[in-house]
Amino acid sequence: MKQIKVWDFATRLFHWLLVTLILAAWYTIENRMIEQHELIGHALLGLIIFRICWGFIGSTTARFTHFLTSPLSALSYLKASLTLNAPHSSGHNPAGGWMVIMMLLIIGFQLLSGMYANDDLGFSGALSDSITKDMSDTFTQLHAINFNILVALIWLHLVAVFFYLLVKNENLVRAMFSGKKPVNQINPQDQLNFKPLLQAMVCLLASVGLGFWLMV
């Protein structure tokens, strides 16, 4: 079946870099590699800044205006999904759009709390000197608690991805690698425009630079 491009390279790169860096962040903290954990945190910060920017200036399917709907629409979509009557979306579906927002908020808070955190062993986050030690300790605890929320969100995300794969026979994982979906799995009314890769790379470099600038 004919394949149609739905995801630009930048969005796909963002997605898989996010997966890799979150796994790396988990691995480093579990193995007491705090310096590496901090580096990964700042890389993630750059990545999140990029995604927010790309949500405003990026390709059609990456833009917030394309996938953000009212919460009621998202709930209706979820209900329709359960009865397998939900319409196809070219990019993020209404429920998926809210998942993106939740992910950005939760990961954003994880990064912010990490920058205010300390480990009592000589490490303190990039912004922790600007607050009291007690507050820094509180952020350290919130950093740990928020991780559980992030894991729950990732679980929900995976449940949805496998629902599409196993029940609806839509392979979203492959689409996120190739950037293409079969023509019968997209919304034919969508007019998709893609921004140049150079624009995305400039935006990504500037964002990552900003993320690491906070570290020094």
């Binding site: 009865t83 397998l84 009557n85 319409p87 196809h88 449940v159 629902f163 196993l166 029940v167 609806k168």
Partner: peptide, 19 residues
């Protein structure tokens, strides 16, 4: 939108129970 078959509905139900 494709027609939903009973087999697909059963699959969906099983998947949700599994999850």
């Amino acid at each position: 939108m494709n027609q939903v078959t009973p087999k697909q509905q059963l699959k969906a139900k099983r998947y949700l129970y599994f999850v």
